[in-house]
Simulated assay, not measured.
Amino acid sequence: MNLAIFDLDNTLISGDSEAEWPRFMQKRGLLPQSHLDQSEVYYQQYLAGTLDLKAALDHQLAHLADFSRTELEQLHAEYMVERILPIIPGKARALLAAHRAQGDLVLIITATNRFLTAPIARELGVEHLIAIELAEDADGNFTGRAEGVLSFREGKIERLHAWLAERGERLADYRQTFFYSDSKNDLPLLSVVSHPVAVDPDPVLLEHAEAHGWPVISLRD
């Protein structure tokens, strides 16, 4: 069996789910413009490869504690319709379907939190997801903090190995391992799979992919 791993933001979707959420919330009057402005600063730092993820998470997640899980799930359903479904390319769905048709195990691994990304993974028909985990209080509401190893840069490798170990597996147990990503931040994980693929890559990843003979593809419709 093969393992096909996918980044989510700007790879399987033609946008960033973490960036779209505060825009959605601000439009609804549930976040101030100042929060959105700072979110955009962190997003540009992510694109530049200079992001302090813990600082960004402290900012991005704090407001989740102001809402119950029921309220957040209702908001997320609207967010999916307004912000996410329009940016899921048909080519991404087709690539996922092709891997499933070959009997490959499909996994999404993302540096965005599980609250935002789990419904997107379900929409894409992907059962397995590694994402940033969120702490919960005794009532199951979010505290506004992340917990555990962050699935970002080298953290994606650590989380992947831990996930495989829970299944009683290793990366080497798979005949072929694919990882599809757009970002230079994913160079660590791209470098350990047998089939790295650059998807609509940023300039740094594009240069690296071309220098190493990695496939470069586009999933944009």
Rank of each mutant, 00 (worst) to 15 (best):
R69L: 01
S34G: 04
T117I: 06
I108A: 07
E40D: 10
T177R: 10
L85D: 14
R83H: 15
W214I: 15
H195A: 09
W163C: 02
N185V: 01
G168E: 00
H35M: 11
M1W: 10
L205F: 14
P89V: 13
T112R: 02
A48R: 12
E154V: 06
I13Q: 08
D137G: 01
L124Y: 06
P22F: 03
E127V: 03
G125E: 05
P215F: 12
V192L: 12
L171A: 05
N10Q: 13
R23H: 13
P119I: 03
E207P: 13
T112I: 02
K91P: 03
A131T: 01
R175N: 08
E127S: 10
E82D: 15
G148E: 01
R69N: 00
I217M: 09
L72F: 05
D182M: 05
N185A: 06
A198Y: 15
G15K: 09
D37F: 14
A138G: 08
A118F: 06
T112E: 02
H128Q: 13
Y42H: 15
A77H: 10
S181E: 12
L64P: 02
M1D: 12
E169D: 02
A97V: 00
L64Q: 05
L219W: 04
L51F: 06
D66G: 13
R220K: 15
F24A: 09
H59A: 00
H76W: 03
A4D: 07
D16T: 01
A162Y: 00
R122A: 15
R159W: 10
L171V: 05
A118S: 14
R100G: 14
V197E: 08
D202M: 13
R93N: 07
G15C: 07
S34C: 10
W21S: 11
E207H: 14
A211N: 09
A198E: 11
M80K: 10
D173T: 04
A211L: 09
V106M: 11
V149Y: 02
A118V: 07
L47K: 14
D37S: 15
S39I: 10
D221H: 15
D16L: 00
A138R: 09
R122V: 13
D104E: 09
Y46S: 09
N141S: 07
D104T: 08
R170I: 06
V81Q: 14
E71Y: 00
Y46P: 05
T50W: 14
S17T: 14
L51P: 09
H128T: 07
E158V: 11
